[in-house]
């Protein structure tokens, strides 16, 4: 079966075969998980103990190492979701549909973490838990987009119909990504503008930048590990459902 697929498809369809995907995922998953487990303590220790305290914010700034990577990943995961949804919609790529649905709850969690840690950070720094500032509001919209995608995906009896309807919604929602990214530049509000990803180089001390980048890597590895886990679980679930249906018939 795998051989027949390889003969008639390009690279895109080569990896559409769930069995081949399972084999690759089985091989990659332990390494990604191991790397996450190994790097997370190093990153946290570096961020929370080794990195110097901020001259202005003291130790309270250390929440940046949890907050900023979560916010980056909230945007990145939505991009992954939207691209996977588009690939699933256009080429009817079955694995892309599974990947989009698997990414959605992870992205919703990253968004929730970004909102929560931002709120905890905001209390000592801005003196308020929540501010209706442009970036906070647009990230909240992103959170609702994730929830809407999940709800729409699961609102149909027919799984394929739900996947495609939700994919259209995900693509429409991409409009929100540039709004979030540039909200702090367009509206001069409470949230600070970009300090790391700037054309003239990062405006943050290297002693703080390196643990931040390490934490970003840990978040990304964690995302890949959980995505693979969820996709494998979904594919196995489908296989069980098929077997049950075959037995029942």
């Amino acid at each position: 079966m795998a051989r027949a697929d390889a003969a008639d498809g390009g690279a895109l369809h080569r990896y559409a075969n769930p069995l081949r995907f399972q084999r690759i995922a089985d091989a990659v998953y332990p390494w990604v998980l191991g790397a996450t487990a190994a790097l997370a303590p190093i990153g946290l220790w570096w961020a929370l103990v080794v990195a110097p305290a901020d001259y202005q914010q003291g130790d309270a700034y250390r929440i940046i190492f949890v907050h900023v990577p979560a916010a980056w990943m909230a945007l990145f995961t939505y991009l992954v979701l939207a691209v996977a949804a588009a690939v699933g919609l256009i080429w009817r790529h079955p694995l892309a549909e599974v990947a989009a649905r698997a990414a959605a709850p992870i992205g919703a969690c990253f968004t929730a973490i970004a909102l929560l840690t931002g709120s905890i950070w905001g209390k000592p720094m801005w003196g308020t838990w929540w501010e209706w500032d442009a970036r906070l509001t647009s990230v909240l919209i992103l959170f609702f987009l994730y929830l809407g995608y999940i709800a729409l995906h699961d609102a149909f009896d027919d799984v394929a119909r739900g996947a495609r309807a939700a994919a259209i919604l995900a693509i429409v929602g991409v409009v929100n990504l540039p709004i979030i990214k540039f909200s702090v530049d367009w509206w001069n509000t409470l949230h600070q503008p970009a300090t790391v990803m700037r054309l003239d180089g990062p405006r943050i001390d290297p002693a703080m930048l390196w643990p931040l980048l390490l934490m970003a890597l840990v978040y990304k590895l964690y995302f890949v590990a959980v995505l693979l886990l969820r996709m494998r679980a979904e594919l196995t679930g489908r296989r069980i459902a098929n077997l049950r249906a075959a037995q029942g018939a």
Partner: peptide, 21 residues
């Protein structure tokens, strides 16, 4: 998008209101 889905109007609010902001 919601044509033929199981729960219509509540879900419509969740899908559409974020885009209205």
């Amino acid at each position: 998008l919601l044509l033929g889905s199981r729960r219509g109007s509540v879900l419509a609010a969740l899908l559409v209101l974020p885009l209205y902001i």
